[in-house]
Structure formats: structure tokens, C-alpha cells
């Protein structure tokens, strides 16, 4: 029964990694020369954003696989990833707004990336609502898969929005040709933070998928997909 695993070794590992990178990000690495301490927000903001995108990619791939193979395990993965992606998108938006207030003096400045991330949040909130409104288990899985695929078409638009619109948001500093413009110590902490977030993501994904499997096994009708 998948419900057995409460706090697994992997969960402990992920939690410890997150705690270490949080402490290092807050107290150990030096402040950024240009932005000062406020740049430390990057260590949680950027991994949240990247993993939110990864989560939506997982939902997309799982949705395609469900439509192809019609196996419920893909649907469980899709809902799990969408829900975690939504949480991470929410965190990205809030931490981004806080970072914006500290650097631009405004919580919200209709910055392209922040705005389109907010749209992404609404799209996947719509995905979860669509799931909740469909009763039959297999029908829900099939229709949610279609919606999950359509929703993902919006993700590249979000990702490339920084190139489409010219806003306040700083241009990408890590993924671009040539040497990253970020200091190496800070880059190392960013990558370490990304790793710890990824571990937490994988752990949450496994646990949330197991929850869905438990629901399927018990055939609960407690508001599907919630």
C-alpha cells in the first residue's frame, strides 16, 4: 500500500538539503556586489520558477502518455505535478513581487515574466478546477490530459516572454551563451539550492502520486483531484 511511507529516508535527505542550502543562502555566501542582501531571494525564487516549469512539463508529458497508454498511473503523475507546480508558481510570484518591491520599489509593475507567470498560475488553477468538475475517474483522466496538453502550449510563451516584451525584469543571467554573468560563489549556491529544491520536488511528487494511488485504490469520491 503506497500510503505506508510517512517520512522516508529520501524525504529526510531532501529536507536536510533544503535546510542546508537555506542557511548557506541566508548566512554563508557573500551579498551580491550590486544588489546587496536582497539578491539572496534569488536562491529561492529562481529554483521555484524552474521547478514550476519542470512540474508543468511533467504534467504535459504524463498527459500525452495517458492519452497514448490509458494507464491511470500517468494521470496520477499529471495531477501530482500540476498541484506541486501550482504551489511553486505561487511561491515564485510572491517572492518575485517581494524582490520587485525591494529593487524596483513596487510590488507589481506588470513585468512581463512576473505577469505571464501569474497567467500560468491561473491556467493551472483552471486545470485543477476542470478535474474537480469531472465525475467519472477515467473520463476525468482523459479530459484533464487534453486540458493539460493545451495548458502547456502556454508555457513556452511564458518562458520566452522576456524576449517578446521589453520589461523591467532583468535579462536571464544563467542560461545564455557564454560565461554566466553571476559570481561563481553565488552561482554555486544557486545550483545547490536548485538541487535541494529538486529533491523536495521529487519527494513531494512521489508522495502526492502515492496519495492519488491510495485514493484510486479506495475509490474515494471526496472531491476528485483536490
Amino acid at each position: 500500500m503506497p500510503m505506508k511511507a510517512r517520512v522516508s529516508t529520501f524525504g529526510l535527505l531532501a529536507g536536510t538539503a533544503l535546510a542546508i542550502t537555506t542557511i548557506v543562502g541566508l548566512f554563508v555566501v557573500p551579498a551580491d556586489a550590486a544588489q546587496g542582501d536582497v539578491q539572496r531571494i534569488m536562491y529561492v525564487h529562481v529554483p521555484s520558477a524552474w521547478l514550476a516549469y519542470l512540474a508543468f512539463l511533467v504534467t504535459f508529458v504524463s498527459s500525452v502518455l495517458y492519452l497514448w497508454r490509458r494507464e491511470l498511473r500517468f494521470d496520477r503523475l499529471a495531477i501530482a505535478a500540476a498541484e506541486i507546480g501550482l504551489v511553486l508558481t505561487g511561491i515564485t510570484i510572491v517572492t518575485g513581487a517581494i524582490w520587485g518591491k525591494a529593487t524596483w520599489g513596487k510590488w507589481w509593475d506588470w513585468d512581463p515574466r512576473l505577469t505571464t507567470t501569474a497567467i500560468l498560475f491561473v491556467v493551472y488553477a483552471g486545470y485543477l478546477l476542470v478535474r474537480q468538475s469531472l465525475g467519472d475517474r477515467y473520463r476525468r483522466a482523459r479530459l484533464a490530459a487534453v486540458y493539460g496538453i493545451v495548458a502547456f502550449v502556454n508555457v513556452p510563451i511564458v518562458h520566452f516572454s522576456v524576449l517578446w516584451w521589453r520589461g523591467l525584469h532583468q535579462a536571464p543571467t544563467v542560461i545564455r551563451p557564454g560565461d554566466p554573468s553571476i559570481d561563481h560563489t553565488l552561482l554555486f549556491e544557486l545550483l545547490a539550492s536548485l538541487l535541494s529544491f529538486t529533491l523536495v520536488f521529487i519527494w513531494a511528487l512521489r508522495r502526492r502520486t502515492a496519495l492519488e494511488a491510495g485514493r484510486d485504490a479506495a475509490d474515494l469520491t471526496l472531491g476528485p483531484g483536490t
Partner: peptide
């Protein structure tokens, strides 16, 4: 997708407008 969903009239704008 939402043709036979519950609360359809509410769901259509929520599912459609963001896309």
C-alpha cells in the same frame, strides 16, 4: 473538455479565458 462538467457555466470562463 468541459461539455459535461459540473458547474459548467462557471467553469467555461475559468478554463477558457486564461488560455
Amino acid at each position: 473538455v468541459v461539455a459535461d462538467a459540473d458547474r459548467r457555466s462557471l467553469l467555461v470562463p475559468v478554463a477558457l479565458l486564461p488560455l
